[in-house]
Design a binder for these strands. Structure first.
Length: 123
RNA sequence: CGAGUUGACUAGACAAUCGCUGCUUUAUCGUUGUGCCUUAGGGUAAACAGAUAAAGGGGAGGAAAGUCCGGGCUCCAAUGAGCAGGGUGCCAGGUAACGCCUGGGCGGCGUAAGCCGACGACAAGUGCAGCAGAGAGAAGACCGCCGAUGGCCGCUUUGCGGAACAGGUAAGGCUGAAAGGGUGCGGUAAGAGCGCACCGGAUUACUGGUAACAGUAAUUGCAGGGUAAACUCCACCCGGAGCAAGACCAAAUAGGGUUUCAUGAUUAGUUUGACUAAUAUAAGCGUGGCUCGCGUGGAAACCGGGUAGGUUGCUUGAGCCUUAGAGCGAUUUAAGGCCUAGACGAAUGAUUGUCACUUUUCUUUGAAAAGAUACAAAACCCGGCUUAUGUGUCAGCUCACAUA
RNA sequence: GUCCUCAUAGUUUAACUGGAUAAAACUGCGGCCUCCUAAGCCGCUGCUCCAGGUUCGAGUCCUGGUGGGGACG
């Protein structure tokens, strides 16, 4: 079933959720992104599918406007590609210099990462 | 038409597709909580919360920023006052309040419109001023000037001349950021507010003004300058903390209190076992005692605190718009109309197209390419200040040039 | 979000109550010494975070900004 929705169930909400991902991650990266990935918790009832969390540090991106822009782009890209992904929890982190990129470049980088995740998982 | 100056407005527009988050309405689900009914079993969706879907409608700023001031609101402490500490500082007004704003005064800049100003007091007291310089605060003879007067020397001796001993002198030089009113004339041996004129100052009086202050007159030769973003004095203001304030609900695990039961301990009574009553929350082991260490403590009910988490505070307000009145103005009064973000790992977006805009290139119009805008995003709410910043429009005023 | 602190050579610290060339150690660079290196000796290296203001004079006082660090769930 193809869905483009993105509500509170597909986000990481509490520090506990984040800790679970940080404790045993698989890493993916590109020039400006680092992604941490853990398979979803099957026992927990409130994790029906893949979920996204964002960790955009103020140290890496100074201005609030730029931080918000990056968050929105990542969410948008996740929203449009989530039906291709397996059931995982994702935390997206960011490296310095990302605020220099424009929207198009960020989208391309993210799509490359989604494809890479999909390939590895099928193996 | 050019240059400038002040004030106000603006913060890309439209469409399509896919999303996020509140609100309203409708439909479906839903007895988990609350409510209602009850024959105490439960029932109730034409009860409210809650979930899902659809439709409608709303969704960042002029600075949302810095957190520099002032308030509302909440809690804490309170009988009030003072000290300490901090802040403000020409005058009047505005305001909930302010370090803000308006009007006025004074000073500075500018041809002008206009702009800028921590702008009380150093004659209440204490301090500070390196180096340089003669002298730095009731100042000072280094160079200089004079040497009238007194003394010295010479001569043509009731006088004249010389040197510069006593001494006089703040006009000039020198030092410095700063040297104790300024300019001119008189005066003198040389000078000096020593005298006079004007300017400046001080004191007193009067006039105008609510006041700051301004003006006029008279008197006074004139007076210890700078620094208070040095201590200080004077006048006025300030209790502390902040929505992570505060209020409510409250899981698991741990843990507090009370009661009951169970268990073992001690004592007493009855006594085959055991039971009853009282006491204590320990007993026990290392070790006989003290000390120290080790170690055990079941079940149920109720009460209270409270973590995770949730709800609330949370947006109707010193609110906005229009018109009229008061006021030079800030502002204020009245009437009518309007509701305009409430998120919480944190929404307000992405993509595409057309137009507008900017830049570049070619260029008669115009065409093409690129950019998709600057500064920057709410986090309880207001009033200000400061800082950052794109383009354009409107209005007032000033100066210069040209024409009439 | 709220509150609090700090900023001086490349690094770690000084600099009195505002007073004149901002000091010291280590490091770096150059030179001397040595066959070479080390050690030793000599010399060099500063917009006192930035911009204004007060003052005769500011690292120091005042105002505004920039950057770093910390506390509070």
């Amino acid at each position: 079933m193809v869905t483009y929705k993105f509500n509170r169930e597909s986000r990481l909400l509490t520090p506990g959720h984040f800790q679970r991902v940080f404790s045993k991650p698989t890493r993916y990266g590109s020039h400006h992104f680092t992604l941490l990935i853990t398979p979803s918790d099957k026992n927990s009832s409130d994790a029906p599918n893949n979920r996204l969390g964002l960790a955009i540090a103020k140290k890496r991106v100074k201005l609030a406007v730029q931080r918000n822009r990056i968050k929105r782009l990542v969410r948008e890209s996740f929203r449009l590609n989530q039906h291709n992904l397996p059931d995982i929890d994702i935390v997206v982190m960011v490296k310095s210099g990302i605020d220099q990129l424009d929207n198009n470049e960020i989208n391309q980088q993210l799509e490359k990462i989604w494809r890479k995740i999909n390939q590895r998982h099928k193996k």
